[in-house]
Amino acid sequence: MKFDRSGVNALMEITSRPELVFVRGQGSWLEDHTGKRYLDFVQGWAVNCLGHCPPEVVKAINEQSARLINPSPAFYNEPSMELAKRLTGASCFDRIFFANSGAEANEGAIKLARKWGRLNRKGAFKIITFDHSFHGRTIATMSASGKPGWDTLFAPQVEGFPKADLNDLDSVRALIDDQTVAIMLEPIQGEAGVIPATREFMQGLRKLADDHGLLLIVDEVQTGMGRTGKLFAYELSGITPDIMTLGKGIGGGVPLAALCAREAVSCFEHGDQGGTYNGNPLMTAAGVAVFDTLTAPGFMDEVNARARQLSEGLLALSAQWGMQGERGEGLLRALMLDRNDGAAIVETARDWMPEGMLLNAPRPNLLRFMPALNVTAGEIDLMLQRLDEVIGKVRAA
């Protein structure tokens, strides 16, 4: 298969892409148009929680597509109800609204919190978020995010998102006023470089929210669905949020997300929320397959075993190369480099070897790892071995 330049020119230019076309994938491996294989430790930015083309998801999609694809969200469908029951049964939440992307789920969380504020806090609408956070690419979720420069990129912003500092409870407390309705955060800031909120900070936020009558919203688009070694990252802190958003891994590769809320917060009225494709049976059938796989006996034990292996391997590499260590939870981890050669390592890993490797550098001095949750011990060892070789190649040059 030749690289199709006319196809490239037909696509809107929104990011820099290498001149390769992926044509098939299985598990932790991808293959491009030339037949070259790649060990994938990005997995669509933590989307493919069971790897590429997992048999469980493929089977669910094939069977559901022959039965019913989209009857309209104005009607009930069986897979959406089955997935909603599973999510509420496994969490502290009572109600689920299905969406198509994490940004859309976060938009829903913002709307729900503001509606709750109008009903319960005299119109309070401000939601405290955090510097360096990432909540999506819609206008409202970009305004909620703390990425540098996003406050002017598509100005004017949506108002009402004052920014605090992660793991600094006093910085949150200082922003609370009579117009504050909620606090919203990622339990681990992924785009910022895999920075976890501490257990103490999460617990402090819950108490602060309770003391002031505020909602606590956890954006688990990246951390949810087993990524941190628990089904949901909020469980690591032993707290009960009021609202949670899910995306990425919930569909195992298909467009699916969820807005989850406790009963007391579920104040949408008819017409407040909706969407043409939301909760359609094709996507939610895939979600059921993903959920049942993640919650099967022993699956999360294996995730945590692989997480320990990856952490220990990254620490060994760090010590060998004089780097700054590693951090993260479960199979969302980062290697902190001692210099700004992250992009060079990513490019060399992809292109240099006969078999490539896909890595991610969200910061110049940091590599992020988001393998499939069913990655094998052998695949982690292979990645670590090849990463060592790639670092040597980059730094020799």
Rank of each mutant, 00 (worst) to 15 (best):
P362C: 04
A144Q: 08
A174I: 04
M1G: 11
R206P: 00
L87G: 01
R262G: 14
I127E: 00
D40G: 06
N278M: 11
E269F: 05
D177S: 07
L358S: 00
T376L: 07
D351H: 13
G330P: 02
F369T: 04
L68S: 12
T376Y: 10
L387F: 05
F369E: 01
M184H: 06
M184R: 02
V47I: 11
S65C: 11
L39T: 05
G89W: 11
D151A: 13
I61H: 03
C260S: 10
I14E: 08
H212D: 11
K85V: 00
I380S: 03
D210K: 11
R37L: 12
M244G: 00
V47S: 15
V254Y: 06
G25K: 01
D211T: 10
M12C: 05
P55I: 07
V47G: 02
P156V: 09
N9Q: 13
T15F: 12
E269H: 10
Q64E: 13
M81N: 06
L315C: 10
V218R: 01
D40V: 10
R37E: 12
L366A: 07
A155V: 04
D94W: 09
K111C: 07
D219L: 07
L39E: 05
T223A: 14
D168C: 11
W45T: 15
D178S: 14
T152D: 09
A264M: 00
S6P: 00
T245N: 05
G330C: 05
L382V: 03
D292T: 03
A74V: 13
F201C: 09
M184L: 15
I250A: 03
A140P: 01
R368S: 15
D165Q: 15
R137A: 13
F22N: 09
L185T: 09
Q309G: 02
R5W: 15
R306M: 14
E159T: 14
L310A: 08
M184I: 03
D32N: 14
L39S: 04
F369L: 15
Q203H: 02
A289Y: 03
A377L: 09
G238I: 10
D170W: 06
T152F: 11
L153R: 13
E269V: 07
L335Y: 05
S133F: 08
V23A: 04
A84D: 03
D292I: 06
T284L: 08
P362T: 07
S28E: 09
R118Q: 14
A264T: 11
A105M: 02
S318R: 07
G25W: 08
M283F: 11
A233C: 15
A99K: 12
G328H: 08
L282T: 04
V57T: 13
R86F: 00
L384C: 06
T141L: 08
D381F: 01
A377S: 15
A46I: 07
T245K: 03
I61D: 01
Q309P: 00
A289I: 10
F3D: 00
D170T: 14
L20V: 12
E355F: 07
L366W: 06
G287R: 05
